[in-house]
């Protein structure tokens, strides 16, 4: 049985009479110890997918017309707020994009770390403090017994993200959701944080869902990748398959927009023309057709079926066999 099985997840928002389909049909599975990447441009529904797994979407305006999220045999969609709080931060943790604003500026790091253990494991403040210091050291914060007494503003960006990771790992969760954890950091710090996450995945066996718009980052991190566009899953494949033989034109376009060091005369990068569509006013047929160089009348008329190419390999495109 897989650790997490998401089936037909849809997250819509009611906005001034309009229904915005932020996530519109996402299915994927995650095995224990696996790292799955979700990639796509801004507004493709990556973050909303993950916030939906945590049930952190404010309802209203958000609602889930369909979908089930099976986690360790339980359907999270059927849990109430109280049952869900027992899972959040305990069995499923999340780290966010912006470590500057994701820690509470008014509370010490110690308070923010120990409260997790106090609520989920009934630890006393003292026990919790010891565990927190250990884990801070584990994520590479020197001088942890002194640093833990400090406030977030006394940490640098990279250090704050380490604190966030430490906070997420306190209860040794089965699943860690990382929503663009390195986007706000500079490149050298990015590499350190990615390395740290890989180590933790290996040492603790924590499964990770890794959200990013950076194809370079997912290549080195993940086992499998889900590509999202305008709220829909357009391609799903193992990382090596996806990079070697991308099937969806959108995946292809994403890959050609990465700068590469291993090709001498690359010429200019190929950007994807146009902008991601407005979710409240999607184009007809395949949402990607206005930006796709292979698009024809069929693409404008109807949304393509998902084509199962092999086990765990899927693409939703009329031109997939071309």
């Amino acid at each position: 049985m897989s650790l997490l099985k998401i089936s037909d997840l849809r997250t819509y928002f009611k906005m001034e009479g309009n229904v915005v389909k932020a996530v519109d049909g996402v299915d994927f599975e995650l095995e224990k110890g696996e790292i799955v990447g979700i990639v796509g441009e801004s507004g493709s529904g990556k973050s909303v997918t993950c916030l939906s797994i945590m049930k952190l979407i404010p309802e209203p305006p958000g609602f889930y017309p369909t979908g089930s999220i099976e986690f360790m045999g339980k359907d999270l969609m059927k849990l109430n707020t109280k049952q869900m709080s027992k899972i959040r931060g305990n069995q499923i943790s999340m780290i966010f994009q912006d470590p500057m604003s994701s820690l509470n500026p008014f509370l010490t790091v110690e308070t923010q770390l120990t409260e997790v253990l106090e609520i989920h494991q009934n630890k006393t403040r003292k026990e919790a403090q010891k565990i927190a210091i250990d884990i801070l050291e584990r994520v590479g914060i020197a001088n942890a017994p002194r640093r833990i007494k400090q406030f977030p503003h006394e940490f640098s960006g990279g250090m704050r993200q380490r604190v966030m990771i430490a906070m997420a790992l306190l209860c040794r969760p089965e699943l860690l959701i990382a929503d663009e954890p390195t986007t706000a950091l500079d490149v050298t710090i990015q590499a350190q944080i990615l390395e740290l996450m890989k180590d933790l995945n290996r040492d603790f066996g924590t499964s990770i869902i890794f959200i990013t718009h950076n194809m370079g980052v997912v290549a080195g991190m993940t086992d499998r990748i889900v590509v999202m566009y305008a709220g829909k899953m357009v391609e799903k494949a193992s990382t090596s398959d996806l990079f070697e033989t991308p099937k969806h034109p959108y995946t292809n376009a994403l890959l050609s927009s990465i700068p590469r060091l291993d090709i001498d005369d690359q010429g200019s990068l190929t950007p994807i023309p146009g902008l991601p569509p407005d979710l409240s006013d999607l184009p007809s047929g395949c949402s990607f057709h206005p930006r796709c160089k292979f698009a024809d009348d069929q693409c404008k008329a109807a949304y393509p079926d998902r084509i199962e190419l092999s086990k765990d390999r899927m693409a939703a495109c009329w031109k997939v066999n071309v």
């Binding site: 945590m54 952190l56 709080s85 999340m94």
Partner: peptide, 12 residues
């Protein structure tokens, strides 16, 4: 964002 973090930690 830090309130979202607090909710994600499982606080009531």
């Amino acid at each position: 964002n830090y309130i979202r973090t607090a909710r994600a930690k499982g606080l009531s």
